[in-house]
Simulated scan of single mutants.
Amino acid sequence: MMVSELFTRIEKKHFDNIYLILGKEEYIQEKVVKAFIECIPEEERAMNISQYDMEVNLLTDVLGDALSAPFFGERKLIIIKRPLFLTAESKKTKLDQNVDELVNYIKNPEPRTILLFVAPYEKLDERKKITKQLLKNATLVESGYASENDTLQEVKKTISRNGYTIEAKAYELLQIRTEGKLSLIMNELPKLFLLAYKTKVINEEMIDRMVARTLEQNIFDLGKLVLSNKIAVAIEMYNDLIEQHEEPLKINAILIGQVRLLLQVQILQQHGYAQGNIASALKVHPYRVKLALQNSRKYSRKALSEKYAGLVKLEEQMKSSQRDAGKLFQLFMLGYFSEKK
């Protein structure tokens, strides 16, 4: 089910017993949670709305709550956040969740309880019995990354509602600094509103001043230098990142991911995939795909493959030897980890 369809059903008071909100877009998830909360009369919310964090709370407590009747109300709402037990990452938590209890509840839910799972993950582990049962019985609502146009419309609407405007170049820079992610943009707006309080116009200088560059953006610039074989400048920028106490393996992992994305985008585009289809197929934010499409045209598949292989060998050297990371990166830039070496 699309989020827009869910909002329509909520407005009409058409509810199912179990919902699963899946995806990485926190802003959309928060809107969904707020819409469900507003369905419970304000005077009943204290007694008939519960929230549980599954990295802290036990499923046994959640289900005990779910099975109890609403307190002087028509229905109760139980919000279950971070259900890590639905993913392949569940071993990271120390809590031992009794998922068999949940499987039994899903098969026979309490009719006056709305169970809302908020899963901020790209995917679930569908090999698990509990995940299979939930996907079979719950109403799945995907809160994946918003499209570029949907993001623009949502941001403009929020800015206008607060009595502000934003210049075109300012919005472009805001997109770059937040990688086009709606949740990150919305988190930055309150600071920008304060800065633009007198003029009511958000300009490029305000974005540059208030919205910091991320490590990924710095490494994106490094990646362009690497792919363009600008050896001296790339080595200088790499050393600057190391001096800023960035981890060499983390830098390399991000570089590998960037080059891999360029390769994937290039291949899928050659097979006739459009930008939106590529984002869906790779489960990557549409803005990252847009940038990758723009940049992948500058490089041949052979060049990208060679750089990718070299970065993988660089990572192997970093993990297996005691040599200085800066020296190893220099060797990589000089071609010592290429196929012919």
Rank of each mutant, 00 (worst) to 15 (best):
K230H: 12
E339T: 10
H14Y: 03
R323V: 15
V62Y: 06
A46L: 09
T158D: 02
F337D: 03
Y287H: 01
Q244L: 12
E167M: 13
Y19Q: 00
I254H: 01
E101A: 10
Q244I: 03
R297D: 03
G144P: 00
V233M: 14
L134F: 07
V233T: 15
S296I: 05
V289D: 01
H245E: 10
K169P: 02
L140S: 00
S143V: 05
L195M: 11
L304F: 10
T87N: 07
D65H: 06
I185A: 03
R9N: 12
K340D: 10
K302N: 06
V233R: 14
S90P: 00
V3K: 05
I219P: 09
M47D: 04
D96K: 13
E26W: 00
N239G: 08
E179C: 13
I207M: 11
V211Q: 14
I254C: 01
K34M: 03
P286V: 03
A35H: 03
F71W: 06
K107L: 13
Y299R: 00
K31Y: 02
S68R: 04
I176F: 11
S4W: 00
K341L: 10
M210A: 15
Y164F: 14
I185T: 08
V155S: 00
R45S: 08
E216Q: 14
I207V: 15
A232R: 12
N203S: 13
Q51N: 08
I28V: 14
L263F: 07
R112I: 02
K200C: 12
V62H: 02
T199W: 07
E25S: 03
S160W: 02
G64C: 07
R213G: 12
K157V: 01
A232L: 13
L215N: 14
G310V: 01
L58G: 09
S68W: 04
I79Y: 03
D125Q: 06
V56T: 11
L173M: 14
G180I: 06
K91G: 10
A66M: 02
I278G: 01
G163E: 10
S280M: 02
Y308V: 07
K81E: 13
G310H: 07
E74V: 05
K302Y: 11
G73T: 03
K198V: 11
I37P: 00
S147Y: 00
V265A: 08
T8G: 04
K31R: 14
H245F: 13
P111L: 07
G272Y: 00
